[in-house]
Design a protein around this nucleic acid. Structure first.
Lengths: 224, 224
DNA sequence: CTAATATGTGAAGTGGCCTTCATCTTGTGG
DNA sequence: CCACAAGATGAAGGCCACTTCACATATTAG
């Protein structure tokens, strides 16, 4: 419940030389690799450092503790996904509903499937260990982007955009998670992608039509 | 990947007297409570035993290790959810597509929301700690039940029932997870429930119509 | 080139948690 | 009522991971 942060999560020191930047990158990648190969339960600071080719002490120079490490890795990854979706939404503002729907779905699915290994690894990490805050933040960004996009479609009108956007994004993100966890091969994911395009379009048209019918009865004046 | 099971997961002993059955129940409930109040990372065998009002040794008489405990709790919970959905599907076989869709969605959402606390707690646990096997099993049951249900609808025909069922169940389960994790109040969940009913109907009708159009073109002979 | 600063090292300390087992208590069949 | 089985106890062992810190090495500035 309470998003308490009893521990320091900010980097203890920021990289100033090229050498240390490479170190931090190596630690990031090592974290994902360990997560993938050994799972969260067997991810230890020593193992990550070893895999990254640095000593444990080095790791603790940039991340005050293990939790901060996971937090950083998850946040960095979610940032990229959210940014990709936001950008796609921005490019599609004002387009018809079907186009907007496709853009939203494809941007998300492709961002997640661009690096399936990383996605799988981070689903494992993000689920537990108090990293729920960056997950919630990223979800909020998707939610807002979707709501704005839907609101901008000229051929649609929703009476409860918030609920529609929430449900759509929940279905999209949740289903993608299930698909990636259960069905990692490209073929299955392609089929899944197509079905999600269809599901989103169908849902949005249905939700939009419901409004049209009602508004046509209630008041006739067109939207400004 | 490999579903290795290096550790014994079966109960070390099964309860024979009423006393011990109560003990096991108490341990189950204590596990959920600890999970909810302290999170997975701080769930320890000692704490669960303490909360259950028994000693650690007692716990180890029924569960050979911590992992087995979590496995048992998660499996038990998922069994109930899967059974509820299967039963609802069985009752709805042969009904029109819209009815079937509603039954599937409502059965799942209500099973999950019946005990929101437990659902939240178990989402935390099931994500990590090698309990993915019961999750996969339950998902498979839902998937098969959905596929059979869709196949039985007299007013629908799908060219790829497997993909449709998979995507629908993925969206349903994934979205519900997101909703429960993000949005625990009853009001929001009710709105979510309604939207999922709408999404499922819209998707299924769309997927079914696509088939109708194609089959009408390709061959005219009715399905046997 | 030298001092100052940034970065890297890894053995050792510390604490917590899982698990065991010798022993005690409670229930049951004869 | 007794003996045997089932159930319960919890202190102690052992293991393992996180984290620290005194010291070594590399880089940069002047």
């Amino acid at each position: 419940m309470t998003a308490r942060r009893p521990r320091q999560l900010n980097p203890r020191k920021i990289p100033r030389q090229a050498r240390s930047e490479a170190t931090v990158r190596a630690i990031f990648e090592a974290t994902i690799q360990v997560l993938l190969q050994l799972g969260f339960a067997r991810l230890t600071t020593t193992r990550v450092a070893e895999r990254a080719g640095v000593s444990v002490g080095t790791m603790y120079q940039y991340f005050p503790n293990k939790e901060a490490l996971l937090h950083a890795v998850v946040s960095h990854y979610l940032d990229r996904v959210a940014a990709a979706v936001e950008e796609s939404c921005a490019r599609t503002m004002g387009k018809p509903l079907g186009t907007a729907s496709d853009a939203l779905v494809s941007a998300y699915v492709m961002a997640k499937c661009g690096d399936i290994a990383a996605s799988q690894a981070l689903y494992r990490a993000s689920s537990e260990l108090e990293v729920s805050e960056p997950v919630t933040a990223a979800f909020g960004r998707l939610n807002r982007a979707a709501a704005r996009l839907l609101g901008s479609a000229p051929d649609a009108a929703f009476e409860d955009i918030e609920d529609v956007a929430f449900s759509l994004v929940a279905a999209l993100t949740g289903a993608t998670r299930v698909a990636i966890e259960n069905n990692a091969d490209r073929r299955g994911l392609d089929a899944f992608h197509r079905k999600m395009l269809e599901m989103s379009r169908a849902f949005l048209h249905s939700a939009s039509m419901a409004r049209s019918r009602q508004s046509a009865v209630r008041d006739e004046r067109p939207v400004p």
